[in-house]
């Protein structure tokens, strides 16, 4: 999947539109414990699905070169966090759905194409 294809899923909304979205998503990982992420979700290109919206999520996504972050449960990062992600070229999306439900939507989308 390419990051931009997330825009084809109606439950997902992109938060920062001036970033690069041609990156390939190599893996999906849903987690709200950041140290756990550092130990387990180490693949470049990972799509992180999380309810944590602070600056540290952006720092980790940048350090580990994640392709995209999807914030779940209607959690919205601050403008400062969005701007930081934009400066690091990290696409941010959000959804009102839970981690499991949005991942199911992504799987359904992928099975249709």
């Amino acid at each position: 999947m390419i990051v931009r294809e997330l825009n084809n899923i109606k439950e997902i909304k992109q938060l920062n539109k001036s970033v690069e979205v041609d990156t390939v998503v190599t893996d999906f990982y849903a987690c709200d414990l950041l140290s756990f992420l550092m130990g387990h979700a180490t693949q470049e290109g990972t799509c992180l699905i999380t309810a944590i919206t602070n600056m540290n999520v952006i720092a980790i996504a940048s350090l580990l070169e994640y392709s995209v972050i999807i914030f779940v449960e209607d959690m919205t990062p601050s403008e400062e966090v969005i701007m930081k992600a934009e400066s690091l070229n990290i696409p941010l999306f959000k959804t009102t759905l839970s981690s499991l439900k949005i991942y199911k939507e992504i799987l359904d989308y992928e099975s249709q194409i």
């Binding site: 756990f36 130990g39 602070n54 999520v57």
Partner: peptide, 15 residues
């Protein structure tokens, strides 16, 4: 509250 405290820090560093 900020997503830390999983108790993985030192083990992650060592690994």
């Amino acid at each position: 509250e900020n997503g830390f405290g999983a108790g993985m820090g030192l083990p992650n560093m060592q690994k």
